[in-house]
């Protein structure tokens, strides 16, 4: 029996099998990233050849007030939408993990909006947010509250975007539900025997056990916020009044395909990549401290 010969094929064989991805990676990822790296040092309008301008674009990054505003907006959005969204998703996951009638239906109803094309989501919510005839202000009116001009008052556009974001927490909720299923019931039983109330059980059993799911959702969320585009692009072109809902990718798109400043836009795409890599690394670094992996102990 020469099992080894049977089981290991030549690297050429392996490379051949993964060649579809390898070619795609080279053409649609590696090559663009390299070209974008070069253009980030160029002045390029897409018509005349790119002109090398040294570090000019990169110094502009430091002194571009609009860029700083989009970074600030994106960070503000993340600072509110991520924690609130995760808390809501976890709360709903807890409720929908309990043995209650119609559980599958409630889960499906909350999950459904996450499948909706974001352009449609944007338009549906423009109508919901409509100050006079929109669903939200009509409901608030019934409660005796005069709703604001959600999409035309610069003080409210960011809040509108955060509320809109809450409609898409179904994904995070499903991940939490899966994580909750994996919590061994003995842990709850022994906690109950020790006289732990619901809150204590949550604090000392549930929370540590779902911490990997929380961590996962945070990482996904951090990568996602820098790519927010379709819904605000439709609802608040140019970021709405005061550009308070002008997000990073919207600016990147406008620079490239509206103002044809492809060189500078490439610089920003590299900045975006750097921000995402940095924040993910940061999450992993701090994650190690509080994420509890059951497998690590076994």
């Amino acid at each position: 029996m020469n099992k080894r010969v049977h089981n290991s094929d030549s690297a050429v064989h392996g490379l051949l099998w993964i060649s579809p991805w390898l070619v795609g990676f080279a053409v649609f990822t590696l090559l663009p990233v390299v070209i974008s790296g070069y253009w980030s040092f160029c002045d390029f309008d897409g018509l005349r050849p790119a002109v090398f301008t040294g570090t000019e674009n990169w110094t502009t990054v430091l002194h571009d007030p609009l860029l700083h505003q989009t970074v600030r907006n994106t960070a503000i959005y993340a600072a509110f939408a991520l924690p609130i969204g995760l808390a809501l998703a976890l709360g709903l996951a807890l409720a929908l993990s309990a043995r209650i009638p119609g559980r599958a239906v409630w889960r499906a109803m909350i999950f459904l909006p996450t499948l909706m094309p974001l352009v449609a989501v944007g338009i549906i919510w423009m109508w919901v947010f409509n100050a006079r005839y929109g669903l939200l202000n009509l409901v608030l009116g019934k409660l005796g509250i005069t709703g604001p001009n959600w999409l035309t008052d610069p003080q409210w556009t960011m809040s509108s975007m955060v509320i809109l974001g809450m409609w898409g927490i179904g994904n995070a909720m499903i991940i939490f539900i899966a994580a909750l299923q994996d919590v061994p019931s003995e842990l709850y039983e022994s906690a109950a025997l020790d006289g732990a109330g619901p809150w204590q059980r949550f604090r000392s059993v549930t929370l540590p056990m779902v911490s990997p799911a929380i961590f996962f959702n945070v990482v996904i969320g951090v990568i996602y916020v820098w790519q927010i585009f379709a819904a605000p692009y439709v609802m608040l072109p140019g970021g709405g009044p005061g550009r308070n809902a002008y997000f990073y990718t919207m600016y990147l798109y406008d620079l490239a395909f509206t103002y044809r400043r492809f060189g500078y836009a490439c610089t920003l795409s590299w900045v975006q990549l750097a921000i995402i890599l940095f924040l993910t690394a940061l999450a992993f670094r701090f994650g190690r401290r509080w994420v509890y992996y059951r497998g690590a102990l076994q």
Binding site: L31, P32, V33, S36, Y253, F262, S269, Q272
Partner: peptide, 9 residues
Amino acid sequence: IPFPATMIP
């Protein structure tokens, strides 16, 4: 790697 990062090239 997000799509916007490779979009222009």
